[in-house]
């Protein structure tokens, strides 16, 4: 994807990630600036989970997603979550906990999932930037901490 086209598609998709949506979902949008999204999931009684999506070459590549504490520190341990989406790792490439879900670069580059091609997903409604964030948020909601 030409960098200008990647930026255009990124900006078209993040335009709808509005303050009103963030307020409704208790998200904190720390940064949305191509090629990065920095978004924290918050809720009463829950430990904040902050995600940074690195969307270089969007959407020829899925976003690389890193997991952080509310203060931005990389997470070294994950809170309990029954979905399997947040994997304690370490991921063979990053050596960190990672998002193990279709739509995350770490999933599609993991030796267990390299046959599950991003190419087959990238134009689906569920795999826009908002769709991926929503899936991650719904997974996080099932956690207990």
């Amino acid at each position: 994807m030409h960098p200008a086209a990647a930026k255009l598609l990124f900006e078209e998709q993040v335009r709808k990630l509005t303050p009103a949506l963030a307020e409704r979902r208790d998200w904190v949008l720390h940064l949305i600036d191509f090629p990065s999204i920095d978004c924290a999931f918050t809720a009463n009684g829950r430990t904040t989970l902050r995600l940074q999506l690195h969307c270089d070459d969007w959407n020829d590549l899925p976003p690389a997603i890193t997991l952080h504490a509310g203060n931005g520190d990389f997470l070294s341990q994950l809170p309990p979550n029954p979905t399997g989406v947040f994997n304690p790792g370490p991921h063979p490439s990053t050596q960190r906990p990672f998002v193990c879900m279709r739509g995350a670069r770490e999933y599609h580059t993991h030796p267990s999932h390299v046959g599950d091609l991003w190419e087959n997903l990238k134009n689906q409604e569920n795999y826009t930037l908002g769709g991926i964030l929503t899936q991650l948020w719904n997974a996080w909601q099932k956690g207990t901490d």
Partner: peptide, 13 residues
């Protein structure tokens, strides 16, 4: 009633 609507998480692990 505020309804939030979107895709459920995909399988992980």
């Amino acid at each position: 009633v505020d309804i939030d609507w979107g895709p459920k998480e995909g399988g992980g692990g």
